[in-house]
Amino acid sequence: MAAIDDVARDFTAMLRLGQFEAAGERYWADAVTSIEPADLPTGTPAFVTGIDAARGKAKFRFGEGRIDELGIDGPFVTGDQFALFLDMLITDPVSGDAQPFTEIAIFTVRDGRIVEERFFYD
């Protein structure tokens, strides 16, 4: 079983390389819970449980736009959780408009897997 420090560092390294889907596949637990501040524009609820639901949410979040810039501070580890501060510039592939997007993400890890991810943003 991987220690939380190892999970946090490897997961973060994968994100820095733009490997968002691969990071989720490697570290999400089958019953992962993913929590957003509000329902997504696609109608996906703010609170979803299960790896298939997390995959769908990730596809919307990262498949709809191109991340042109990505800055990550962290991971900041405490207990069974780690946090990341993400600062992105996301370009809409249709319009070409670029929008800055900043969020704080908190991940809870048990048995080497992410069992909960919680995102904070405006």
Results as ranks from 00 to 15, higher is better:
90 I>R: 15
29 A>T: 09
12 T>S: 13
28 W>H: 15
80 D>I: 03
68 D>W: 03
46 A>L: 12
46 A>Y: 11
90 I>K: 14
15 L>C: 02
45 P>K: 15
69 E>C: 06
86 L>T: 08
20 F>C: 01
6 D>G: 06
84 L>I: 01
45 P>D: 06
28 W>M: 07
46 A>N: 12
5 D>Y: 05
82 F>P: 05
19 Q>W: 02
40 L>G: 04
31 A>G: 10
39 D>W: 03
89 L>S: 12
47 F>K: 14
76 F>Y: 15
77 V>E: 01
54 A>K: 00
29 A>M: 10
75 P>Y: 11
40 L>C: 01
55 R>Q: 12
8 A>S: 06
11 F>A: 15
25 E>R: 14
42 T>N: 14
24 G>F: 01
4 I>V: 15
49 T>P: 02
4 I>S: 09
65 G>A: 13
83 A>W: 04
62 F>I: 03
37 P>M: 11
20 F>D: 02
80 D>P: 04
71 G>L: 00
82 F>T: 04
52 D>V: 00
51 I>H: 09
29 A>P: 08
41 P>Q: 04
43 G>N: 12
6 D>L: 07
54 A>W: 04
51 I>L: 10
85 F>Y: 07
11 F>P: 13
76 F>D: 00
30 D>S: 13
79 G>E: 15
34 S>L: 09
18 G>V: 09
51 I>S: 06
8 A>Q: 01
12 T>A: 11
59 K>W: 08
32 V>F: 00
86 L>Y: 03
13 A>K: 10
13 A>C: 07
45 P>Y: 05
32 V>L: 04
45 P>N: 10
30 D>W: 00
24 G>E: 04
67 I>P: 09
23 A>H: 03
47 F>W: 12
45 P>W: 04
12 T>K: 06
47 F>T: 13
6 D>N: 07
5 D>N: 14
81 Q>H: 06
84 L>V: 01
66 R>P: 06
29 A>S: 15
50 G>W: 01
55 R>M: 08
80 D>L: 02
43 G>M: 09
84 L>H: 01
52 D>Q: 11
3 A>S: 15
62 F>K: 02
90 I>A: 10
4 I>L: 12
83 A>Y: 04
37 P>S: 08
71 G>A: 02
91 T>W: 04
88 M>F: 11
